[in-house]
Simulated assay, not measured.
Amino acid sequence: MTMTTVKVLTTMLGDIGGHHYGYDLMKQVGIGSGTLYPLLARLEQAGLIESNWEEANPNEVGRGKRKYYALTSHGQAVAQLEQKKLKQMISVGGIINV
């Protein structure tokens, strides 16, 4: 699992009940859309996240519809495991500047 994937999963883990949309994740993780959206598609295909389109009327909210992503229960378990591995690597000096 790549560091970018771990960052996305742990960002989503920070708000387990939340639904995250792409632009928000891009800002939080610090990656571009060309990296994020293929990554989200792979995570969804693997069953780690699920997505749905918001039901808001674009004319009422003044923007296009957002697609929201949320961790599945399996995704939460994987994210927690990867977060634990990352913390262990950091504690033994295996990674700098996460």
Score class of each variant (00 low, 15 high):
R66L: 15
S91P: 07
S33T: 12
R42V: 07
G94D: 06
H19L: 10
E55I: 12
M1D: 03
A41G: 10
V78G: 05
E55R: 14
H19P: 04
G17A: 06
G17W: 06
R66Y: 14
M3L: 14
I96G: 11
E60G: 02
G17T: 05
G32M: 06
G62Q: 04
T10E: 14
G32P: 03
I49R: 00
Q83P: 02
N57V: 11
L39N: 03
G22D: 08
T2H: 10
K7S: 14
T4I: 15
N97P: 06
P38R: 01
G17M: 08
L36T: 04
L71D: 01
G14A: 00
Y23G: 03
E60H: 10
N59L: 15
Y68P: 01
E60S: 10
I49A: 05
D24W: 14
T2K: 10
G22C: 11
N97W: 15
S73C: 02
P38I: 00
I16F: 01
H19G: 14
I95Y: 09
Y21E: 15
D15Q: 08
K84N: 12
Q76R: 13
Q88Y: 10
L86R: 11
L86C: 03
H19M: 12
I16H: 06
K67G: 06
K7V: 05
S91C: 05
L9F: 05
A70F: 06
G17Y: 08
V8C: 07
T10C: 03
K87H: 14
Q83C: 07
T4Y: 03
Y69H: 13
V78D: 04
G94M: 03
V29H: 02
L13W: 04
R42L: 06
T10V: 13
T2S: 15
I90S: 07
I95T: 05
A77I: 09
T2E: 13
T72C: 08
Q45T: 13
N52F: 15
A41Y: 07
L86W: 01
K87Y: 11
K65Y: 02
G93M: 05
Q76T: 15
A79W: 04
V92D: 05
K84H: 15
R63L: 07
A41R: 13
M12S: 00
S73N: 10
W53L: 11
M12R: 03
S33L: 11
G94Y: 06
I49F: 01
A79G: 02
D24Q: 14
I31T: 04
N57T: 12
A79P: 02
L71T: 00
T72M: 04
N52M: 13
L13F: 09
G18N: 12
T35V: 15
Q28R: 15
L39V: 01
A46L: 09
K87L: 13
L36N: 01
M26D: 06
I95L: 15
L43E: 00
G32T: 10
M12T: 01
Y21K: 09
V6W: 00
K27L: 14
E44W: 01
G47E: 07
D24Y: 13
M26V: 00
M12L: 05
I16E: 15
A79I: 07
K87V: 07
V8L: 05
A56H: 09
K7N: 13
H20E: 00
A56F: 11
Y68D: 05
V29S: 01
R63K: 07
T5V: 14
Q80I: 07
L86M: 01
G62W: 08
T4V: 13
A79R: 04
Q28D: 09
V98G: 08
A77W: 09
Q83N: 10
I96C: 00
G64K: 14
G17H: 09
R42G: 01
R63F: 11
